[in-house]
Amino acid sequence: MVISLDLITSVISFLFTLLILSYLIGDNPLFRIAVYIFVGVSSGYVAAVAWWQVIMPRLIYPLVYGSVLERSFIAIPLLGALLILMKIFPRWAGLARIAMAFLVGAGAAVIIAGALIGTLIPQISATINAFDVNSASVRNISVVEVIFNGAFILAGTVFTLIYFHFGASPKADGSMRRLGLIETSAWVGRIFIGITLGTIFAGVFAAALTALIERISALINFFGNF
């Protein structure tokens, strides 16, 4: 009798699902066993992926089979990789700062440009364009509706931003409070933030519910296969 890989996968999947769901009746060793094994398996898998899909193709392969120019270019990241590996040894962990500095600098530049080009300018422009009456015909809605929606979007954007303005000045009684206009705007901003967070909560719940449905469906299908 040949046991198929799908059957093995189904059995293991069923077991691990049950072990994890056992947490609903309380914390228990079975749940912990499943979680620890999961962490170990995931880490091992990620390490294998990092080796086969990062180290091998991007570092070792060019170093072995690459041209002289490729090898010379790969020498620097190789050195950086060795420096990062120094983090393993506490005595030499300080050397890893060099490579980490490079990573941080590169990341900073990328997020600056991305935030500026990809979010700040387009989103501000879109907030302005929300009042574009020409879009009414494209969306097949009335101009009034465009302005109405645009006003809400603008108000939500501005008041939400104002809510995150925490600059305050001392009052006569010694308390620190924001300016009255900002305080009022922040209060309105809280309404928009509450709505947004409520929307996100509903989305998270929907995602979690879908995951639960998928798991229960998998359990039912496991029994259905027999």
Binding site: G118, P122, Q123, S125, A126, A130, T196, I200, G203, T210
Partner: peptide, 24 residues
């Protein structure tokens, strides 16, 4: 995912993305 859609919706509104399909 449905949980990420509210924060991606502004990018559709700004026409940086052409379409958005979220969740089930």
């Amino acid at each position: 995912s449905a949980q990420a859609a509210p924060m991606i919706q502004p990018y559709y509104e700004s026409q940086q993305i052409s379409g958005l399909v979220s969740g089930l």
